[in-house]
Design a protein around this nucleic acid. Sequence first.
RNA 1: GGAGAGAUGGCAGAGUGGUCGAUUGCGGCGGUCUUGAAAACCGCUGUACCGCAAGGUACCGGGGGUUCGAAUCCCUCUCUCUCCGCCA
Length: 423
Amino acid sequence: MLTLQALRNDRTALQAALKKRGLDAAPLLDRILNLDLERRTTQKKVDDLKAQQNTASREIGDLFKSGKKEEAESRRAQMGELKEQIHQLDELQKTLIHDQEAALLELPNRPHESVPAGQSDADNEVVSEEGDKPSLHEKAMPHWELADRYKLIDFEAGVKITGAGFPVYRGKGAKLQRALIQFFLDRADAAGYEEFIPPHLVNPDSGRGTGQLPDKEGQMYHCADDDLYLIPTAEVPLTNLFRGDMLNAEELPMQLCGYTPCFRREAGSYGKDVRGLNRLHQFDKVEIVRFERPENSYTALEGMVEHVRNLLRDLELPFRTLRLCGGDLGFTAALTFDLEVWSAAQQRWLEVSSVSNFETYQSNRLHCRFRNDEGKPELVHTLNGSALALPRIVAALLENHQTENGIRIPAALQPYTGFDTIA
RNA sequence: GGAGAGAUGGCAGAGUGGUCGAUUGCGGCGGUCUUGAAAACCGCUGUACCGCAAGGUACCGGGGGUUCGAAUCCCUCUCUCUCCGCCA
């Protein structure tokens, strides 16, 4: 969430920035600032009363010690009303803080100045496009047919043992998954990201830390008996690693990566969008995460995008980079670049990576800080990106590299698969 | 699952009802000394909120209670550790 300070300091600019999301933040900002004013007034009152109480208590203690018992007793008898007043104001203060916190949680992150205004993904800005879209032979198929033909993925078996959206990978299909994971992890390692294997279930505090809770509750699988959530992305456990911590300034930037399966309920989709590997309830992903000093975070973001581009180049996939517009920008992000690969057989772009800078939006909720050069605690900037999510990469690999004699494995991946063709 | 112990500042670790926001050590910052560094010595060093400031208030795992007054007593929850049981 945004800091109250950011909101108070420069409300006009904030309101203008949020407009790029298509959000009229004025009523919410008014509500928060009014609550803030009331909270401060109450604070002043209650602090004064408590100061009175503290002074009186000290004096009563002194009276007892110096043997003036009667005077002490009479002073003590007078404290009741003061106590009651304090109690009531304390309760009011709690309500105000709670309401203010709740209102603050409703406010999305402030878009970076480079974010274009816009309603939907149609308004995203194409930053660059790279690679040649292949022209396929006449009998070319979409990936779900290829997966079936070469016995790489068994969608029906997944439906039987679990349900739709839980594919079973088999044979070379399974090996391809494992090869991609290893390939992505090796590249992340070479780029300086330390590998982590985090838990795949997290507690509610972690869900709140990265912003999945409370608003996106329905998108995660929940284990009710233990009140744990299946992670929708490794971002959740990786970022929460440092929840509540004071980071060592010399250790910044911190670069983490991790492979995990990801679980998403994704209710409400249908049609070609969810066909085959396009949208799944369980999928694999390698995630990269950075904790940065604020002044470096946008340079770091560029670096992360370039890291992902290099992966796509090595996989010989045509791709483009989008700068998300305000309307398509995630709730918690200040700036996001999406990377999309061209799906030749489906004739459409598939999102394979989303790289974002959250600035202090996550770290404020996480209470994750470092000591700046003045020795003062300061919120870090957090960033993350997929590097990469597997299913749509697999879809594009199958479709774009298909020939009449089988599917060609890109050279960079062959050391990992141990085969150069799927036939 | 059973029994016991514990949770205090960046870290370690004292503190069992009244100048305790908290002794001390480490770490960090500044200084003396030194050509420089180390060592030694001296000093400073938590966070948040209110306030122009002076200052005030809160925070010793979370929540509640007792009391004029709680890190300290009581209740409760969470977590950690040790031992036992079960298990990959």
